[in-house]
Amino acid sequence: MIVLVAATVAALVRSARSPFAAPITEPQKVPFLGGGAPTTHAWQRYHVRYYPMTLLFIAFEMEMMFMYPWAVVFVEEGGKAMMEMGMFLAILSVGILYGWREGVFRWQ
């Protein structure tokens, strides 16, 4: 219901018609480069500079999945849970250090 209402509101705003709307001509469509015109498409095999970082990110994302249930039972389990997650985070921290040494966080 909320999704529906919000999406409808946003869609209505997005599709509001301007009283000045007119067919858009070709020269109006040239991508904005401050005067120049590009020679090629902007879409390309884009060189993503943070590619290794995203791989590391996946490791942490997976870790989050274990953390949700862990958070719920933490107080019941007490020290044991603390130790477990402490070890897990410690290993991941070593991962960050290793990644840093390997230049994962550089814009390469």
Binding site: V13, A16, S18, P19, F20, A21, A22, I24, Q28, K29, V30, P31, H41
Partner: peptide, 11 residues
């Protein structure tokens, strides 16, 4: 903003 027309790019 609401009364200004929307723009478009090539494809």
């Amino acid at each position: 903003m609401a009364i200004a027309p929307k723009s478009d790019t090539e494809h």
